[in-house]
Design a protein around this nucleic acid. Structure first.
Lengths: 207, 207
DNA sequence: TTTCGGTGTTTACAATATAAACATTACTCT
DNA sequence: AGAGTAATGTTTATATTGTAAACACCGAAA
């Protein structure tokens, strides 16, 4: 699995490398990530990472994988703190998603780097975070049964929602929206509006 | 401006470089783009591009700029072929957007590369394609006045729509949606569903 | 204890971005 | 037309980087 090997020379270099890479991406962006910087940060020679990852892409892939784990954890936590209403759980985990995506823009970018995926299209990775999607579909189905969400295939509804959320955070993170609304609204107001629009699309008032 | 310089040694190297870069991105993806390949493809020495672009990022930036021009042209053309109904124009130019984005996935990715933008955040570039947004907002306002679109600030409506569309094409281009619906629907059906959802959000039946 | 596979290091190399010095050509001014 | 100059292209050189290869060390299994 992805789990760390026992402690040899370094202790747990694989994990240390992933964390170093993560920090560098956060500080310098994906472009600033070099194997040599990662190695140096982990305190090993520049070729050491090759004992744990076949190449640079695979190291990044591991970082991405870890990112999706973290994201899922955040969403689960939010969900578990949201009481028993499926719609509230849905809203709460969605907010966790936004907070993660907008709190670590560089990280989020790498996680959704289509370029990387096109090269090292790892099927497992594509499915990563599928658990969140499934969760969401369940929520929608339950809410439909309760009559508080518009009928229709919840899978399609979920796809539409995911598109909106992903598109919004991507554009917002790249600062591509601000000039459209200028001083008229705060960022938070726009964010809330988009969320409201999603709930309207489901035919419910925002919880 | 960005306009080509007159013909010197090469003829119009700047433009040739942009086109070569574009072709390479299309064939090999953004990662496969090297200054040297671009130069070779344009038939000049590997350092020649530096007479036209300060560095690699700026070459890519020029490619992106050109991409937004092309996209705007496509959208304008679609719009002009759509008759006089503002909603039909809106729908038609939106479809042109989808066709462009999904027809040249690598290109679209580069155009929206947040990584590049984070490094060379060119204000002009951020505003690029703003003309399309403005067009869209106008359409919405007119349609509102005609009573066929739900009231509300059309700027916010447009942001929500742009988010959905951008998110959808990004995810679809990276093949991150297919496994969610599997064989249940065709790609086209899903695409249509998302568009329908957008129109529903505006409170209109799809034209 | 010996041995061996896993882990880290050193050394080496090729590709690349980019700078610097040089060469050539086209346009301007007379 | 001819000289001068700036724009454009080439050659050469350098530092960074990804990655391979050969070597070294260490802990566990025998």
């Amino acid at each position: 699995m992805t789990t760390a090997k026992a402690a040899y020379h370094h202790g747990d270099l694989r994990t240390a490398l992933i964390e170093a890479a993560l920090a560098i991406i956060d500080e310098l962006g994906p472009q600033g990530l070099t194997i040599r910087k990662v190695a140096h940060r982990a305190g090993v020679s520049h070729a050491a990472p090759y004992r744990h990852f076949p190449d640079k892409d695979d190291l990044i892939l591991a970082v991405v994988e870890r990112g999706f784990e973290l994201l899922d954890e955040e969403m689960e936590r939010a969900r578990s703190e949201a009481g028993s209403d499926p719609l509230a759980q849905f809203a709460s985990s969605g907010e966790a998603y936004l907070n993660f995506a907008m709190g670590y823009p560089a990280y989020y970018r790498v996680m959704f780097s289509g370029d990387l995926l096109a090269r090292k299209g790892n099927e497992a990775l594509r499915h990563t975070s599928a658990s969140s999607f499934v969760r969401m579909i369940d929520d929608l189905r339950i809410a439909q049964d309760m009559g508080i969400v518009r009928p229709g295939d919840p899978t399609l509804q979920a796809i539409s929602i995911v598109s909106t959320v992903h598109g919004f955070v991507s554009l917002a993170n790249d600062n591509r929206l601000h000039h459209l609304y200028g001083e008229k609204y705060t960022d938070q107001q726009v964010r809330d509006f988009v969320l409201t629009a999603i709930f309207e699309g489901l035919g419910v008032d925002q919880p």
